[in-house]
Structures are given as structure tokens and as C-alpha cells.
Design a protein around this nucleic acid. Structure first.
Lengths: 156, 156
DNA sequence: GTTTAGGCCGGATTTTATCCTGTTGAATGG
DNA sequence: CCATTCAACAGGATAAAATCCGGCCTAAAC
């Protein structure tokens, strides 16, 4: 842990990660500070880049995004610009929640949410496979989301 | 899209997903409502389960979680309770951000953030491989995070 | 020993959330 | 067709929170 963060800073980050909309007054009580001191710390943590922003957690089930899929993508490395073009395409597609370049048996791992299998077929065909340079894909449909917190662990 | 959501509801969800800490007054201006009407909608969206909560987005680079890995896990299906025990273990480990049971060539896909490769070795050895019933794992270390929004797409 | 700076607190002020009331407009039923 | 009902909204009043403003304390620097 960054030594510039003391116990209270870390507690603030944990609390805000859990409930990003907690009132500063309540947050101050939880961490044992006055509202003023607490607010100053939150501002500092934001200024220094520890806190990147805040967001609502939405329910994919109710928002026509009930099917979660992971797709491994292998590119044809002989084609110029494939990596760049793939990135641009992925950034442009709102179904894609995450895309990571990985070291290992393939090039990119894509996490996408779509309405159903039909929507996934469209996504695969119209977006992924229509890109030149995509040599191979493997799709894994999620049957059960065991853990979804996305929270970063912050030690005490 | 769920037909009970109108254009304004969807705009509210988009705004809150982007900035979960926007003041209700400002949100109301953006969506073209009075503060009262806007607040009522947010409460309804929460009551009906569209909004699950709010969270701060933290910077993993600064929080000793700079290495992102995905691990495919194949379980030994002849051992009783393997699935249940695996789930419990995964829920207990704070490095694990996500864990999904998938259909395909393996059983679980785990997303974890650790400090570095050394920490990952510990995680793999002490957590994953020490579980009885884990037959095989494949690790993919992330070299570049192309997209990380995690945002759910909400049509206009 | 004095100065300086950082972090904290409590009270004052501004801003925001929340409550309350009345209006509008659309749908319903006589 | 008109009266009734209901849902959603707006605006003002009040409660709560954020933010600002000195002042205090401590530790480090000089």
C-alpha cells in the first residue's frame, strides 16, 4: 500500500467503494473525523488520483443485458494495423464492457453483455468476425455469476 | 428495453452510471425535470431494482493492485462438493474481483487483481491450487487494458 | 526558542435534499 | 359529453448536508 495513505484514508476508500453516495457527514462519523476534515481527505484522494469517479451499479437483468459472454480473440499478426483496428472497433461497441490484451494463447479477452443468444450471434458476426485480421474466436457464455463485486482490495 | 422505462428514465440511468454522485438538482436540469420529479424517479428506479447501488471507481495502479489476471479453472467433477467449495473459497478472497461459471472448455473464469507476479504466484498456489478438486488452471496476464468501462449499454 | 505548515475542529453560510400542496392532463366511467 | 380519478409534475417551505472561514494544536524546520 502506498505509504502516503494512512489507516483513515484506506477506510474512506473502502467505504466509498461500497457506497459511493454516502453523505460526507456519515462518512466522517464512520472514520472518526469531523465533516470538514473528512471532506478534505476525500478531495485530496480525488486530486491525487486514488478516486477516479463514481458510478451507479445497474441491474443488467432488467436492462436487456442478461447474457454475459467472454470471448477470446486471436488475431492474424501478419495483417498490418490489426491490433489498432481491433481496439478502435471494440471501443466503439457499447456491448463490450471490457477488453484486455493478454499474454498467453490468444490476443484479446473481451467481456460483453447482450440481451440473449440471438443478440450475441449478431455481435459476433457483425462486429468481431467482420473485422479483418480476426483469425479465431472462442466464446464462453456465463451460466452463473458467482462474484461480481469488482471491488479493489484495500488492506487495513 | 423494459417498456416501463421511458426516455427520461433511461437518461437518468445513463447519467448516474457515468457520474453516480451528481447532485439531484443538476441531474434534474440535464434530464429536463424539476428536482422533485427527478428525485422521485431515481427513488422509483432504485425501488424497482434498476439501480443496485453506487460505488467509487478507484485506481488499481496506485493501490497495489497493478497486475490484472484472468484464470480459467477446470474442476475435478468426480469430487463431491467441489463447485460449492470453490465458490466459497472465491467469495472469501479479496483479490478476486469476479468469478463466473461458464459453459465451454473449463468451469470457472476468475478475474483477480494482485500487486505483482510474486503476489500472483502466492494467490495461485495458496488459494486456487490448494483447493481439492481443482484439476487444471490456465492463467492469462493482462498486458494492456483496452477498455474497462464496465458500463451497461442503455439505448435512447 | 521561534516560525511555519499541515491537519483538525466547530460554527456560520450556502447549497441541496426532502416534504408538502396545488395544478395539469390523460384515462375512466357514468 | 362531463365529472372523477390518478399519476406525474412544479414550486415554495423546511430540514439536512456541503462548504467556507477562522482558530487551535502539534510537529518539523530553522
Amino acid at each position: 500500500m502506498n505509504s502516503q495513505l494512512d489507516r483513515i484514508d484506506r477506510k474512506i476508500l473502502r467505504e466509498l467503494q461500497t457506497d459511493g453516495r454516502i453523505a460526507n457527514v456519515d462518512l466522517a462519523k464512520r472514520v472518526g473525523l469531523s465533516a470538514t476534515a473528512c471532506l478534505e481527505r476525500v478531495k485530496r484522494l480525488t486530486r491525487e488520483g486514488f478516486i477516479l469517479g463514481y458510478g451507479a451499479r445497474l441491474n443488467p437483468e432488467l436492462l436487456e443485458a442478461g447474457l454475459l459472454v467472454f470471448v477470446e480473440v486471436l488475431l492474424d499478426r501478419t495483417t498490418p494495423d490489426v491490433f489498432e483496428r481491433f481496439k478502435v472497433a471494440v471501443l466503439d461497441r457499447s456491448e463490450v464492457q471490457e477488453c484486455h490484451m493478454v499474454a498467453g494463447g490468444f490476443d484479446y479477452l473481451v467481456k460483453a453483455r447482450v440481451r440473449d443468444m440471438k443478440a450475441y450471434r449478431d455481435f459476433l458476426g457483425h462486429t468481431l468476425l467482420s473485422l479483418p485480421g480476426v483469425r479465431e474466436t472462442h466464446t464462453y457464455a456465463v451460466m452463473e455469476e458467482v462474484k461480481e463485486s469488482g471491488a479493489i482490495h484495500i488492506p487495513n
